[in-house]
Design a protein around this nucleic acid. Structure first.
Lengths: 339, 339
DNA sequence: CTGAAAGCGCTTACAG
DNA sequence: CTGAAAGCGCTTACAG
């Protein structure tokens, strides 16, 4: 490593102490303006680069935050969380922090092994992005370390999590379907897979209840197995007039399936999604869906971890981020209602 | 910060020196097996966590690699590079390195400001993922710092880059179209946008040349403006029987456009893409395309930066990664050829 | 306004 | 096999 200019070098060349250089470069008081300028100029000239590692040593802080994403939420078809990660990174950087991505392998998740970045003090805290197994959540909860769960939560009230308002989002989009004239509405999603899917189901159910529509068991359609792998959706014999899907990707799959059976969307039946991710606009017809406010979620998560790094006593509980409906082409009144 | 157990603490409790603890924990020789075990056990018990910052200080190395992606290649519709980043991260981690993502804002790119991770020595090298402006390439080239360009290159032969074999990939998929019976083949892409698009065009052109097919200017269709924003594709009056698109996303857009004109793919005309990303399988019909070997590219890039970190003299030049054709549904013989 | 001293937690090179 | 010393580059707290 050459070009290894240190504060000391600058100090020596100027005949001052490194303390003074440190103060000047950090714009702290205790150095005359004149000297400060001289120091800054020389630093520039010499190509001085600050050594963050020294600061880390001194403060015991890495100024890195680990973003942990379970493997199954990554990959070519699961770009949603990577996009959230990207937002997190950008927000982190504004605050002088950096995000280190850790893909949690299914193996590590099963064996309850924590990310190496934890054991090496490479990060000051975690943002866990995407639901892990119950056991793993507990494992992470068990360590005394700043952490925020993003986009999921679990029964323990004492964990800090930032989530979309799944319940009301789903409630409202179901209301919208009902207002459009639908009463035969199915829900697509595995109720025991993640907290999000479950809450979205309950929002849908609330809407039915309020409108005195009876929930039929055969209107709850499973979309994935316990591992989260998508399975073929079993359509009921009596086709509902509308489907509330737990996410856009599943809505996309459903539309394909319906089409293959010669059923047109939205003419023959309506479909709505959730997330407003790439699948919402890529599907033909484009999907009416619930938009998740990724930026707001990332912002909260970042704010919370950083505050917890600074003060480990802080706690935030479950924080909901508002969502809103994006209207596109996949909804029409049911056929028999059209005059 | 509590739970701040150091090697020193372990040493004190055991009545040995911290040097011995360091050796034991790092499995170096010079400590009796018995003592080593005792030290390791105590470390475990005390919840000791290694302090990577101290090592960084000592060695002047952060063990982080910065992955720089220009802003315009990110976002909800551009998941390809984020996926590459994810591969990079995983490979990096196996070697004890960590990836720090830096989204290069268009503003910073224009003003030629380098990522802050550079000025703070937060990283030991860069992987630049995605083509930046010529000026920015030169700016980065100008600093004495390990760097590898991934998925693009420029005229300067002395830069290390890992790229897909765009030329031959495109050449071969065009050959395939010709073998299928097509002779009226258009290319879709802005020839002056990136090195990849240009090389893919040239591969297509080589195939035409070899088959004595004359390249018509009206068969080169622009797909984006100088900023990389997609524009509406202008179809020629005389529709070709096949289209070679510079990437899957553009192929996807083209298929939608053709469909909206009542032209069926692949019955009325064939379309091929490049990348084999999410758009390849999401398009209806699924796209025959050239698969980019993301894993292999990431592997090379990581290997090269790390070697350059260790020995700044190393250089690798342009390294091509083989691609191969994935056959799906978007190609059929041209109509008039079908008996 | 300026600086000497001490320390953050580890490792290397050397001595015993 | 074990350890005292020095040092990585910075900052904090204190003294002048």
């Amino acid at each position: 490593m050459k070009n290894n200019v240190t504060m000391r070098d600058i100090a020596d060349q100027l005949g001052v102490s490194s303390v003074t250089v440190s103060k000047a470069l950090n714009d702290k008081e205790g150095v005359s303006e004149e000297l400060k300028l001289k120091i800054k100029n020389l630093a520039e000239e010499l190509g001085y680069r600050y050594n963050a590692a020294a600061k880390s040593m001194k403060e015991g802080l890495s100024y890195n935050i680990g973003v942990v994403i379970p493997e199954r939420f990554t990959g070519i078809n699961q770009s949603f969380y990577l996009n959230v990660y990207q937002s997190i990174t950008r927000i982190l950087e504004k605050q002088g922090y950096y995000g280190i991505l850790h893909i949690l392998s299914s193996e590590d998740e099963r064996n309850l092994v924590l990310p190496r970045i934890y054991y090496e003090r490479k990060v000051d805290g975690f943002i866990v992005l995407g639901q892990t197994s119950k056991e793993y959540i507990e494992k992470i909860q068990g360590i005394e370390f700043p952490k925020v769960f993003l986009d999921f939560y679990d029964e323990h009230a004492d964990i800090d999590s930032v989530i979309t308002d799944n319940f009301y989002g789903s409630y409202e989009i179901t209301n919208y379907l009902i207002q459009t004239g639908h009463r035969d509405i199915a829900y697509v999603g595995n109720l025991h897979s993640t907290s999000s899917i479950q809450d979205r189901f309950l929002g849908y159910y609330k809407s039915l209840l309020e409108h005195r529509i009876i929930l039929k068991q055969e209107h709850i359609l499973n979309d994935r197995d316990e591992k989260g792998t998508y399975i073929d959706i079993d359509l009921p014999d009596q086709l509902p007039t509308a489907f509330v899907c737990n996410c856009d990707q599943v809505a996309h799959n459903l539309v394909l399936k319906l089409k293959s059976r010669g059923i047109n969307v939205p003419e023959d039946c309506s479909v709505v999604g959730f997330d407003n991710d790439i699948y919402a606009t890529i599907t033909d017809p484009t999907l009416t869906t619930v938009e998740v406010d990724v930026e707001e979620m990332a912002q909260n998560a970042v704010k919370f971890v950083i505050e917890k790094v600074k003060n480990s006593e802080k706690s935030f509980g479950r924080v909901l981020v508002k969502s809103n409906i994006v209207y596109r082409e996949s909804v029409k009144p049911p056929k028999n209602k059209v005059k």
